[in-house]
Write a protein that binds this DNA or RNA. Sequence first.
DNA 1: CGTTACGCTGACGTTAACGTCAATTGATCT
DNA 2: AGATCAATTGACGTTAACGTCAGCGTAACG
Lengths: 140, 140
Amino acid sequence: MTTENMMTIREMCDAFDVTPRTLRFYEAKDLIFPHREGTRRLFNRRDRARLKLILRGKRFGFSLEDIRQLLDMYDREGSERSQYLTTYKLAQERMAQMERQRDELIEAIAELKDELADGAEMYRNYTAETGQTPAKKSAA
Amino acid sequence: MTTENMMTIREMCDAFDVTPRTLRFYEAKDLIFPHREGTRRLFNRRDRARLKLILRGKRFGFSLEDIRQLLDMYDREGSERSQYLTTYKLAQERMAQMERQRDELIEAIAELKDELADGAEMYRNYTAETGQTPAKKSAA
DNA sequence: CGTTACGCTGACGTTAACGTCAATTGATCT
DNA sequence: AGATCAATTGACGTTAACGTCAGCGTAACG
């Protein structure tokens, strides 16, 4: 029985491309709870699954605090199935929000583009005033 | 001729729901260049279009530095059309990346769920060791 | 048994994006 | 003129997510 297939902090760092500091930090933030062999940390499969979720959750845009709450939910009793769905829904909602924000951003880009066009027009019969074009200061 | 339809810093703050500090900060970071009437700032339509893009870009997940580079591109001469397309493409790429990251996150969630199931199994013939479930210690 | 080597615990440093506060200045009201 | 109010310029504080460094403990190596 390998019992748990533990890994040292160094092995974890190599496997997940993080620093020891990061792992200790996550532990301090109650995101993972490695065992101790004396003073040293040992990480089991569950720790690894959690870390994986942490790192991917971060990349997706969740804060560590968001993720901690998610993981807490998984720690408290309840159907894994429903918890899974909750998290899934959360990700989908965030995605939908991103889509809306993308559309709004693109709208703003279009407006700035139009603004530039108008600016060029105004420029022709009003000349300067913005100081944007360094070598011009006539007009009175 | 209203000439430019200028707005004071307060009007800007009310219109965009930001603080004066934010506007000065953006100016210090070369994101906007309001005119000066003596010592006071005055914002024109272009400033407003830029601010709009800044705020929406942020919400979408771009850093102020990312946005500065975008705006710089708009300041340098060139076809507004092609610049628009560049920005548009950037937004779409980021969106695609988000989708990939969402999928990876969901995969990690599924794995953690499975891990929990396995854990429960192991629990039945290995009993405790994690200390995760405070109010249970039967099973032998 | 001395010395790397790894790990641990503080504790202070860092970047981004502002918040907060103090000291001034300029404009406005009475 | 005096007071009040809006803005401005420093300058220091704040949060998140670690980086970096110093000082120790200990396990293995020669």
